[in-house]
Simulated scan of single mutants.
Amino acid sequence: MKLKSLSFLLVIVFLASCTSIYSTVENVNNKKTYDSKEQYIETVNKKNHIAKEKIIILKDDELTTFMSEIVSKRLSTYYGIANKSYFVSAEQLSIKSCSGQMTSLYKLFIADDKGIKKSDASEIPFLTNLQLDNSKNTVIFIYSHKLGGMIKSKINGVIDTLEKENNFDYRVISIDNPDIINKTR
């Protein structure tokens, strides 16, 4: 009887602490602020090996619109793929955070597969602010430092796989604006 009670107690403790163990191991939902955009970009670059010029911090009003869209489309980590003519939303992925599906979607995009839904790139207003190279196919990621160690598999994994492709490029849109104290510097 004692062994059964002890086992039950251990299961309860494990289940109750699972979230905090995962958060600690993966450094998820950490509370951190940055004094400036430059400090934020420098930190993201060093910690995640993402090129500084690829990190985009939207203006607060653009971020509000962007956040509404990613919430309504239930996007996670991946926003989509764009070139000078077309935009393909990651909304088409059955598992919105699956790096393998994003890689496959990119390959369908460059193959001009008729099975994927394309929008006219000019219909996505904020794409013009991302300084896309019109000769490239650009994967657009959604990033938050609160994702912790998950970034390595979700974003860096796709970048590492696709950077061997001709005409591949990427941008990483930060949604961490509330954590950047001075966005004007």
Results as ranks from 00 to 15, higher is better:
residue 13 V to D: 05
residue 13 V to F: 09
residue 13 V to Y: 04
residue 13 V to P: 11
residue 14 F to Q: 10
residue 14 F to S: 15
residue 14 F to N: 14
residue 14 F to V: 15
residue 14 F to K: 11
residue 14 F to I: 15
residue 14 F to G: 14
residue 14 F to Y: 14
residue 15 L to W: 10
residue 15 L to H: 09
residue 15 L to T: 12
residue 15 L to V: 15
residue 15 L to G: 14
residue 16 A to G: 15
residue 16 A to E: 07
residue 17 S to G: 13
residue 17 S to D: 03
residue 17 S to Q: 10
residue 18 C to P: 09
residue 18 C to K: 14
residue 18 C to I: 12
residue 18 C to A: 15
residue 18 C to S: 15
residue 19 T to D: 10
residue 19 T to H: 09
residue 19 T to Y: 11
residue 19 T to I: 14
residue 19 T to C: 09
residue 20 S to G: 05
residue 20 S to V: 15
residue 20 S to T: 15
residue 20 S to Y: 11
residue 21 I to W: 06
residue 21 I to F: 08
residue 21 I to M: 06
residue 21 I to N: 06
residue 22 Y to L: 11
residue 22 Y to D: 08
residue 22 Y to R: 12
residue 23 S to K: 13
residue 23 S to Q: 13
residue 23 S to D: 12
residue 23 S to P: 05
residue 23 S to I: 04
residue 24 T to K: 12
residue 24 T to S: 13
residue 24 T to Y: 11
residue 25 V to I: 15
residue 25 V to C: 09
residue 25 V to H: 09
residue 25 V to G: 08
residue 25 V to E: 05
residue 26 E to L: 04
residue 26 E to T: 12
residue 26 E to A: 07
residue 26 E to Q: 11
residue 27 N to A: 09
residue 27 N to C: 02
residue 27 N to H: 07
residue 27 N to F: 01
residue 27 N to V: 10
residue 27 N to Q: 10
residue 28 V to K: 04
residue 28 V to F: 07
residue 29 N to R: 07
residue 29 N to I: 03
residue 29 N to G: 12
residue 29 N to A: 06
residue 29 N to L: 05
residue 29 N to H: 09
residue 29 N to D: 11
residue 29 N to W: 02
residue 30 N to F: 02
residue 31 K to V: 11
residue 31 K to A: 10
residue 32 K to P: 01
residue 32 K to E: 01
residue 33 T to C: 03
residue 33 T to F: 02
residue 33 T to G: 05
residue 33 T to D: 04
residue 33 T to I: 11
residue 33 T to A: 05
residue 34 Y to A: 00
residue 34 Y to F: 13
residue 34 Y to Q: 01
residue 35 D to T: 13
residue 36 S to W: 00
residue 36 S to D: 03
residue 36 S to V: 10
residue 36 S to N: 05
residue 37 K to W: 01
residue 37 K to Q: 06
residue 37 K to D: 03
residue 37 K to N: 13
residue 37 K to R: 12
residue 37 K to M: 01
residue 38 E to Q: 14
residue 38 E to D: 13
residue 38 E to T: 14
residue 39 Q to A: 06
residue 39 Q to E: 14
residue 39 Q to V: 10
residue 40 Y to L: 02
residue 41 I to T: 00
residue 41 I to H: 00
residue 41 I to Y: 01
residue 41 I to P: 00
residue 41 I to Q: 00
residue 42 E to A: 11
residue 42 E to W: 02
residue 42 E to S: 14
residue 43 T to W: 03
residue 43 T to C: 04
residue 43 T to H: 05
residue 43 T to Y: 04
residue 43 T to F: 02
residue 44 V to H: 00
residue 44 V to A: 01
residue 44 V to T: 03
residue 44 V to L: 03
residue 45 N to R: 04
residue 45 N to G: 08
residue 45 N to E: 08
residue 45 N to Y: 00
residue 46 K to M: 06
residue 46 K to I: 01
residue 48 N to C: 08
residue 48 N to G: 05
residue 48 N to H: 08
residue 49 H to Y: 10
residue 49 H to P: 08
residue 49 H to L: 14
